[in-house]
Design a protein around this nucleic acid. Structure first.
Length: 152
DNA sequence: GCCAACGTTGGC
DNA sequence: GCCAACGTTGGC
């Protein structure tokens, strides 16, 4: 039984087009530095799907779908002192942070702006729409997934 | 640019 | 263990 997720990225840093133009249309999803988000990353399995969300965008929107193609493994950027994701508390012996690999699956012909999702029936409890929600990796319930697919 | 919401840090 | 201070996220 596969699961559904939502991944946030600032398009000025890494957009869905960047992913589509990456080698093999695949990238590692590095830089998650929040424990709850990390735990969701570790719960992912190959075959899971995720919405690709553009945060800090105009307008912030769900823009497509990616597939999880590699389950969680240590985030090596946490070990790189030159990386902005460096964390001295993460060691090779005892990694604190993890990443998965995601592959481009689909770009919606029309993005779904955050604002347009707020009054959609069936999305009332979606994490993305919760006031103050900041999780960059979040689970999506199957009914929510299906509602959004229908919209797209 | 503002600021609300949230997570983390560290003094006590 | 509490909580104030601080830093970050991300919508607006």
């Amino acid at each position: 039984m596969s699961s559904y997720w939502l991944l946030k990225s600032e398009p000025s840093v890494f957009s869905i087009d960047d992913l589509a133009h990456s080698p093999g249309q695949t990238t590692c999803w590095e830089g998650v530095r929040n424990y709850q988000a990390r735990n969701f990353l570790r719960a992912m399995t190959v075959g899971d799907q995720a919405f690709f969300y553009h945060s800090n965008a105009d307008p912030p929107s769900i823009v497509g779908i990616v597939n999880i193609v590699k389950a969680a493994y240590p985030d090596r950027f946490a070990w790189d002192s030159r990386s902005k994701y460096f964390d001295q508390n993460s060691s090779r012996d005892n990694p604190a942070w993890f990443m998965v690999d995601v592959k481009f699956a689909k770009k919606f012909s029309t993005p779904l702006p955050l604002d347009s999702l707020r009054d959609i029936k069936g999305l009332e409890n979606m994490e993305l729409l919760r006031k103050g929600s900041r999780l960059s990796v979040q689970p999506v319930r199957k009914p929510e997934w299906n509602v959004i697919l229908t919209l797209a």
